[in-house]
Amino acid sequence: MAATMISLSSNFHIVGFYTQLCPSAEIAVRRAVNEAVSSNPSVAAGLIRMYFHDCFVMGCDASIILKSLPGNPPVEMEHPANNTSLRGFKVIDESKARIEALCPGTVSCADILAFAARDGSYEVGRIYYDVPAGGRDGHVSLGEEVSQNLPQSSFGAQQLAQTFARKGMSVDEMATLSGAHSIGVSHCSSFVNRLYSFNATHTQDPSLDPNCASFLKTRCPSPPSGAGGDLTTTVPLDMVTPNRLDNKYYSELKHHRGLLTSDQTLIDRSLTSRMVSKNGRNGAGWARKFARAVVHMGSIDVLTGAQGEIRRICSVPN
């Protein structure tokens, strides 16, 4: 039986979308990711984070990659939640250039980002999953949408759950995807209040392990009065296996060494504490759930068929 051909305008978001259209697409992305991560393991965390930030703001449409144009409002990548914390854009650009040389105008930047996040997960955590493809690229990126859609480092468990619920994702998926903080770094500004100005009763967050707090103070000095904290110095989100995507993150939470309030709240609140304990005990089980949750996240407001476009250059609309 002859293979079924899928046109670029097909209203599908399926595994194997490019099997006939561009058979080497996923291979090209994988090679670009492997080369980048072998030189700098932190790129993997950047790609996973970029994919999450893209999908949660205006859907999985590669709007996170669009650069600002003169006279237009600020774009997503210029928002403070993105402009100092995201990395991996060069990997996406390199992947796109290689694919355009093979299959011009065929593979969306949205799908390239989805493949890259998967391949980054595999490189640093041996977590592999099939990626549904056939998504298309958005025309618009609005920085003002970021704060309204992304969870913040100061959020408690209930606020995190509500943020994910608005995207159609469960509390367990939220706790599972939080495990991505097993890799990557955070700027001092995201947690320095826990060290020096927590609240009116405690200058230091009592939920933070004192030894961990003492170490963090050596990396993140107290900011001047009225300042928001160091925007350049970074600290690993997981100090045990900072370049390995694994379930050690959950063990650290149990020992009160979660770097961000949004991390530590997962073990300190009954809504998610059992999930944290279970993920900490079963690394293989967590990895399988992580893969399923990422695939589910990748379906948020995907553009298909005649929606959107296939950008020739990922950073600008056609």
Score class of each variant (00 low, 15 high):
M5T: 04
H13D: 14
Y18G: 00
Y18D: 00
Q20P: 02
Q20K: 07
L21I: 09
L21T: 11
I27S: 01
A28I: 01
A28V: 01
A28F: 02
A28D: 05
V29W: 03
V29Q: 00
R30H: 08
A36N: 14
S38L: 05
N40S: 15
A44M: 11
I48Y: 10
D54Y: 11
F56Q: 15
M58E: 11
G59K: 02
C60V: 00
D61M: 05
D61C: 09
A62K: 10
I65E: 03
I65Q: 07
L66R: 02
L66S: 08
K67M: 10
N72P: 07
P73H: 15
E78K: 00
R87P: 07
F89V: 10
K90H: 06
K90G: 05
I92S: 09
I92L: 02
E94N: 12
E94D: 02
K96C: 00
A97Q: 12
E100K: 02
A101F: 01
C103F: 00
T106F: 02
V107P: 03
V107Q: 04
A110V: 10
D111V: 01
I112Y: 08
I112W: 09
A117H: 04
A117D: 01
D119C: 12
S121N: 06
E123I: 04
V124G: 13
G125E: 11
V131F: 14
P132F: 01
G134E: 11
R136A: 06
D137S: 00
S141N: 07
E145F: 02
S147N: 06
Q148H: 12
L150D: 01
G156I: 06
A157W: 09
A157Q: 14
Q158T: 08
Q158E: 10
Q162N: 13
Q162E: 07
K167E: 12
K167R: 14
M169N: 05
S170F: 01
D172W: 13
T176G: 00
S178L: 15
G184R: 13
S186L: 06
H187K: 12
S190D: 03
N193R: 15
L195M: 13
Y196N: 06
N199F: 05
P206A: 09
L208R: 02
L208W: 08
T218A: 04
R219F: 13
P224S: 06
S225Y: 07
L231M: 05
T234P: 01
L237G: 09
M239D: 06
M239W: 11
V240G: 12
N243H: 13
D246H: 05
K248C: 04
H255A: 03
H255Q: 01
H256N: 08
H256P: 03
G258F: 08
G258N: 10
T261F: 09
D263S: 02
I267N: 08
T272D: 14
S273N: 14
R274D: 15
R274P: 10
M275C: 03
G283M: 02
G283E: 04
W286T: 12
A287L: 06
A287N: 06
R288M: 03
K289H: 13
K289N: 07
K289A: 14
F290W: 13
R292C: 12
R292W: 10
V295L: 15
G298D: 15
I310E: 03
R311N: 15
I313A: 01
C314G: 03
V316Q: 09
P317Y: 08
